[in-house]
Amino acid sequence: MSLDPESRRRIAEPASADAVKEARLTPAEAVEHMRIRLPERGNRSLRRVLERANNDRQLKAWWHVSNVNAAVRLEINDHSWVHIQIVANIALKLLRELAKHGVEPSVVRDYGMESDDAEIVVVLAALTHCVGMSVHRRGHEDWSLFLAEPKLQALLDGVYDEPDRTVIVSEVLQAITSHRADGEPLSLEAGILRVADALDMAKGRSRIPFEKGQVSMHSLSAAAIDAVTIGDGESKPVRIEIVMNNSSGLFQVDGLLKAKLRGSGLEPHVEVIAHIDTADEKRLVPEYRLDV
Rank of each mutant, 00 (worst) to 15 (best):
S2F: 07
L3A: 02
P5T: 15
P5V: 05
S7N: 07
R8V: 15
E13V: 09
A17Y: 04
A17I: 13
D18S: 09
V20R: 00
K21G: 05
A23Y: 13
P27W: 11
A30C: 08
E32T: 05
H33N: 08
R35C: 09
I36G: 02
P39D: 03
P39E: 06
G42P: 06
R47A: 08
R48F: 06
V49S: 00
A53Q: 11
N55G: 08
A61Q: 10
H64P: 14
V65M: 07
V65C: 02
V65E: 05
V68K: 14
N69V: 03
A70N: 14
V72P: 09
H79P: 01
H79V: 05
W81I: 12
H83A: 02
A88I: 01
I90H: 06
K93C: 11
K93Y: 03
L95H: 00
R96E: 04
A99K: 00
A99T: 11
E104Q: 15
S106L: 07
V107N: 13
V108N: 15
R109V: 14
S115M: 10
S115R: 08
D117I: 02
A118E: 11
A118P: 00
A125C: 12
L127M: 13
L127T: 03
H129C: 12
C130Q: 10
R137Y: 08
H140A: 15
W143T: 09
W143Y: 14
W143P: 04
L145H: 10
E149V: 14
K151Q: 12
L152A: 12
G158S: 10
V159E: 13
Y160R: 06
D164E: 14
T166E: 07
V167L: 08
E171Q: 13
V172S: 02
L173K: 12
L173D: 07
Q174T: 14
A175P: 04
D182E: 06
G183L: 05
R194N: 04
M201V: 13
G204F: 02
I208Y: 00
I208K: 06
G213P: 12
Q214K: 00
H218P: 14
S219T: 01
L220E: 00
A224M: 04
I230K: 02
G231P: 03
G233Q: 11
S235L: 00
S235P: 13
S235I: 04
K236Q: 15
R239W: 08
V243Y: 01
V243E: 02
N246S: 04
S248V: 10
L250H: 13
Q252D: 07
G255R: 00
L256N: 13
A259F: 14
R262D: 10
R262M: 15
G263P: 12
S264N: 09
G265I: 00
G265M: 00
L266C: 07
A274W: 02
H275M: 03
I276D: 10
E281M: 04
P286R: 03
E287L: 05
E287V: 06
V292Y: 05
